[in-house]
Computed example of a mutant assay.
Amino acid sequence: MDQAKAKIDMMPLGIVIRRSPGVTLWAKWAWKAVAVLPGAAPADWRPLREDEGACEFHAATLPLELHRADAEAYMQGLTASPPSVYVVMRTGAGARPELTLVTASPFEAQDYADTGEDQVEKVEMPAGLVAWVRDFTLAHFKEEEFRKRRRDRTRTDLEEDGVGDARIPQMTDVYRAPVKARKERLQ
């Protein structure tokens, strides 16, 4: 199906995770997403390179889904410097983090970051991936014209707050202090 007509488009992205020694006694390892591999085959923590205690893994291959309803978010992400995808990892009780999502939407990434339960890593997009996301976004993005909200012409300054309900009859002026009640207290 033509990308311009598709409501959803998908590409598998390999996620490269770097494991380095932790800097505290409580964390043995520090995990960080460092790269993505567009069109990668499935993987399960395959080591790519090892360097002075740090090791990079092709940890998993996740689908990057683009939805036409999120075209505005993708446009925001493409205008950032550099354009990036976001990898959402959930650190569990095990040694390795669980990779849950990869997204090109900075809005969706912010939602995951706000929970505080997930680790969200920003990873720079390769040039080919930028072109693919840009083509999809331009096919579906429609900039909304700004329309200033007009106020209604109701006069709110004519109402008096604190006077009371007009449906309830008042025996005296509502602004006057209750003289009778004060005299009774003094006697």
Rank of each mutant, 00 (worst) to 15 (best):
K142Y: 05
D165I: 02
A139Q: 00
E144C: 00
A131M: 06
T172P: 01
E160M: 11
E143L: 03
P169D: 04
K180M: 13
R167I: 03
K183M: 15
K142C: 04
R134W: 04
L158N: 06
L129P: 02
A166I: 13
W132P: 01
K180R: 15
E160Y: 08
M125G: 02
R155W: 01
R147M: 09
T172G: 09
V130Q: 08
I168Y: 06
F141P: 04
L158D: 08
K142G: 01
R155A: 08
V163F: 00
K180H: 10
T156N: 09
R167H: 05
D157N: 10
E145A: 15
R149E: 12
F141L: 13
T156M: 08
R151W: 06
E160G: 04
R134A: 12
A166L: 13
K183D: 09
A127K: 08
V163K: 06
L158F: 08
A127N: 05
H140I: 03
T137C: 07
I168S: 05
A177Y: 12
V130H: 03
H140V: 03
P169Y: 09
Q170C: 09
G128W: 02
Q170N: 12
R185L: 15
A131D: 14
F141I: 02
P126F: 03
A166V: 13
M171F: 12
Q170M: 13
Q170Y: 11
R155H: 08
D135I: 00
E184V: 15
K183G: 02
D173N: 15
T156S: 09
R155P: 00
L138Y: 07
P178K: 14
E184K: 15
W132H: 06
A166H: 11
V133C: 06
G164M: 14
A177V: 14
V174S: 09
R155C: 01
E144F: 05
Q170K: 15
K142P: 00
R150V: 10
D152A: 05
T156W: 11
A127D: 11
R147V: 14
R147Y: 10
W132C: 03
V130F: 01
R149P: 03
L158H: 06
E184W: 10
D165L: 06
